[in-house]
């Protein structure tokens, strides 16, 4: 095992680490022999590009399609339409084993992401065993070194997940993901199951590892507050679509889409002088099987106009990023 961090190759920086074009994924729900069932559009026409070494935050609430998106990027689910390119190569042409060397996941729940019947050492060395790298001793050595990298005492190598705290378990999950030196880490809510103080530790660790291993992160979360700390760019998803995408600073300080604004308003900073924010959001949570006409956010949108329920907004791209809202018609952003 090469324990040295990869050095950045300058030509490779030109191709984005991940490029997603017109990606869609739909599911048939309630299909049976007699009826075709309904179509659930989990991800619809998503376009994203992530540069090498960048952290893209994807923020959205449950049902926004962020988890479906992550499963497609891991190659665990086939897109219904569009394409995902990893290092310029279409994901469908990359073999399972090769893809796993490029993209690895870190999951939300450190209790279900570790096999309760295996020791920490066995869990972390699984990627090496799967790829048949190194002898047994070499693998053990590599596991111990990686444990140190993620801040786990090597003597925990023979313990079981049930003996560890939530934070320690998440460190194990991160160590496992890094064992085969992937370029891209897809973190799906990696801290939302953790306590505040532990969350801070894990976020700090992820930030350190990113520099150390020159990693690209796709960081999925529902908490915009975390993204300001860790992300370079932020994509806001609502009902399967990316409704706004811009630099983290822009989204946090000058959100354009009303939904991004509402998400930002929902970040509760510990300031006792402020009361609860008024989001002016409608309560009618849309049924994903019967999405609203026009812009899918209009039933909840405080700024909804007549045209919002009539037709879907076009995507506007400008120097601030991308936004999909009738408030920002194409070419009118200047």
């Amino acid at each position: 095992m090469n324990m040295q961090p990869k050095t950045q190759q300058s030509p490779a920086t030109q191709t984005p680490a991940v490029e997603i074009a017109n990606l869609s994924r739909s599911f048939q729900v309630g299909a049976s022999l007699m009826s075709k069932g309904k179509t659930l559009r989990a991800v619809e026409d998503v376009n994203l590009s992530v540069k090498r070494g960048e952290v893209l935050g994807i923020v959205g609430e449950s049902g926004s399609g962020k988890t479906t998106l992550s499963r497609m990027m891991l190659g665990l689910m086939k897109p219904s339409g569009g394409s995902i390119r990893i290092d310029g190569q279409n994901i469908t042409t990359i073999g399972r084993s090769e893809l796993s060397r490029k993209v690895q996941p870190v999951f939300q729940d450190p209790y279900s992401s570790l096999n309760p019947r295996k020791t920490i050492g066995q869990i972390i060395s699984l990627p090496l065993e799967t790829h048949g790298s190194g002898s047994r001793e070499e693998r053990t050595k590599a596991v111990e070194e990686m444990m140190l990298q993620v801040g786990l005492a090597p003597r925990l190598i023979h313990s079981y997940p049930s003996q560890l705290s939530g934070g320690q378990r998440q460190r194990v999950a991160i160590a496992r993901a890094l064992m085969i030196r992937p370029e891209i880490l897809i973190c799906d809510e990696p801290t939302s199951a953790l306590d505040v103080s532990v969350q801070a530790q894990i976020l700090n660790l992820l930030k350190d590892l990113r520099e150390k291993f020159n990693l690209t992160y796709i960081f999925i979360t529902h908490d915009l507050g975390i993204l300001e700390f860790i992300a370079d760019r932020v994509a806001v998803m609502y009902m399967g679509r990316v409704v706004e995408s811009a630099t983290a600073w822009n989204v946090m300080n000058a959100p354009r889409h009303p939904y991004a604004e509402a998400l930002l308003g929902s970040v509760l900073t510990p300031d006792p002088k402020l009361g609860l924010p008024d989001l002016h959001l409608g309560r009618g949570f849309p049924d994903p099987l019967n999405p609203p006409t026009g812009c899918s956010f209009h039933p909840r949108c405080p700024k909804a106009m007549p045209q919002c329920s009539a037709n879907a907004p076009r995507t506007t791209r400008d120097e601030h990023g991308l936004v999909e809202c009738h408030l920002y018609p194409e070419g009118a952003s200047k």
Partner: peptide
């Protein structure tokens, strides 16, 4: 707590 104060975000969180 990650702070949001319309300035540059913290480079490290306290833990």
């Amino acid at each position: 707590m990650p702070t949001h104060d319309h300035g540059a975000p913290a480079t490290r969180l306290g833990s």
